[in-house]
């Protein structure tokens, strides 16, 4: 009975543990690759720029991955996806913190702060995205979840704002070729689209009924 076996396989605690380790390893990969590039010199003659960009991209990709867990849970019916969601979100925040520190240290050298954070639209967008993530990371422990009760869920809707503003932060840096940003925009549209569909957009389309 393959079906029964399948269910048992999916419920096994060992599989879940293995899956969590796999996801943690994948989420650590960008950092390991950047570290490897630094050691080998492949990071190039302007390492500060390369590393800051690499960390920012990893943070954004992990935000997208975090948002993909709920749809994956619904499509596959496997609860394992939700068991790694918080970890992915915290990895995203971890990369975002490193990205901000790298920007301040390697790109700005801690100078020109006021002008940078008031005059440059793409920096303001990035700062807003980062500030949205801070309360989410702070309230990620189960204890905070319990204490906040129904507010927790509402607060964590901030991730939607964060990811959209982070995308704008990327878009405003593109100098000529928007290809990469269009692909990420499509991914975002899918992640938002399925949520909209589930939350009742479908009922607005009469043909879908019956």
């Amino acid at each position: 009975m393959p079906g029964v076996l399948g269910i048992e396989w999916r419920r096994s605690a060992g599989v879940l543990l293995g899956f969590r380790w796999l996801v943690a390893a994948l989420a650590s990969l960008p950092l390991l690759l950047l570290a490897g590039d630094m050691v080998s010199g492949a990071v190039g003659p302007d390492p500060g720029q390369t590393i800051t960009e690499g960390l920012g991209l990893a943070a954004f990709q992990l935000l997208l991955a975090t948002l993909a867990m709920t749809p994956l849970r619904r499509w596959t019916g496997w609860a394992g996806w939700l068991r790694v969601r918080r970890m992915l979100g915290l990895f995203a925040f971890f990369y975002a913190v490193l990205h901000v520190l790298a920007f301040l240290q390697f790109i700005l050298g801690w100078s020109d702060l006021w002008a940078t954070f008031t005059k440059r639209p793409y920096i303001i967008a990035g700062a807003v995205a980062f500030l949205c993530l801070v309360p989410l990371a702070v309230t990620s422990p189960v204890s905070a979840m319990r204490r906040l009760g129904p507010y927790w869920k509402r607060l964590h809707k901030l991730i939607y704002l964060a990811v959209v503003v982070a995308w704008v932060h990327f878009l405003w840096q593109a100098r000529s070729d928007l290809g990469e940003m269009v692909i990420y925009g499509l991914l975002l549209a899918i992640l938002f689209g399925v949520r909209g569909y589930w939350s009742g957009w479908s009922s607005l389309v009469p043909l879908k009924k019956g």
């Binding site: 390492p47 639209p121 840096q173």
Partner: peptide, 23 residues
């Protein structure tokens, strides 16, 4: 005259180090 996206007051002379940036 600043570029709208960044300041033009300084530059990183390449190759620049990570922990000793060549500003």
């Amino acid at each position: 005259v600043d570029h709208p996206r960044w300041s033009q007051k300084r530059e990183r002379r390449l190759p620049s180090g990570l922990f000793s940036p060549n500003w």
